[in-house]
Simulated assay, not measured.
Amino acid sequence: MQFDLAFVTKVFAALFAIMNPIANVPVFLSLTEGASATAQQRTAVMATIGTTIGCFIAVLAGGMILAIFGISVNDFRLAGGLLVLLIALSMLQGTASHAHAATPKEKAEDLDPASVAIYPLTVPLLVGPGTIATLIVFAETARTQGKLTELAAGLGLFLALLAAALLSAPFLGRHLSQTATAITRRLMGMILAAVAMEMIVTSLRDLFPGLTR
């Protein structure tokens, strides 16, 4: 079977848009403010590992979890598409989604850098509801269409980029302007909105076959 580079690109772009390493660099720096360079590096590694584990759980066990609750993939695809669309719309408006944002209390507290690697950096900032929904839908598509290799490639490429962004966050923070962050957030919002609409349309077509006639 021919390698589907388009699917790899779609997975990578969707994860980049929804987790947005560039926009999360300032968040990472604010959560580790005052920490030593070693502590920041340790936090970045722990966050990458936590995100990787969370993504693999969503890919490998997401379908089984839905089956336990009697939820079909099409139902979840529709709900996930709506959730991802809301996140995309908030990104287009230049604001962070509530589903992927830390609360004011979390921001104000003097948090230990090692502890923030898992919460709130990994969950819910990186592996939030939108990320989980997107991965479950992509995993089901990959299984039904025989594109597991492409899914692994897209996910692996993104996780490598995420690790590089977090590890180089102090350097990026000195050279990344607020304007660049805002532009990237809106651009990724457009890509994410397109992914969300594809999820919604695909779900509606499967639920209501008459719509395609």
Rank of each mutant, 00 (worst) to 15 (best):
M46S: 14
T43I: 05
F56M: 15
A61E: 09
S97W: 01
F76V: 01
A58R: 04
L92K: 00
M91G: 00
A39Q: 11
I57G: 08
P104E: 01
L92C: 00
G50I: 01
D110Q: 15
E106L: 12
A99G: 10
A102E: 06
I68Q: 11
G81W: 07
A39M: 09
G54H: 07
K107E: 14
A37F: 12
L66Q: 06
L89V: 03
K107Y: 11
T38I: 14
T48G: 08
A108K: 14
L89P: 00
L83F: 05
T51I: 08
M91D: 01
S90R: 04
L92F: 01
I53P: 04
A44I: 03
A37L: 13
F69E: 04
G63F: 04
E106R: 12
L83Y: 01
M64F: 10
M91I: 00
D75E: 15
Q41R: 15
A79E: 10
D110P: 06
A102S: 13
L78K: 08
A101T: 08
G54E: 02
T51S: 15
K107W: 15
L86P: 03
A67D: 13
T43Y: 01
G70P: 10
G94R: 00
T43A: 07
A58S: 14
M46A: 15
Q41V: 10
I65V: 12
A39K: 10
G62A: 06
A88P: 00
L92G: 00
D110I: 14
V84Q: 11
M64G: 10
A99H: 13
D75Y: 14
Q93Y: 00
G63E: 07
A37H: 14
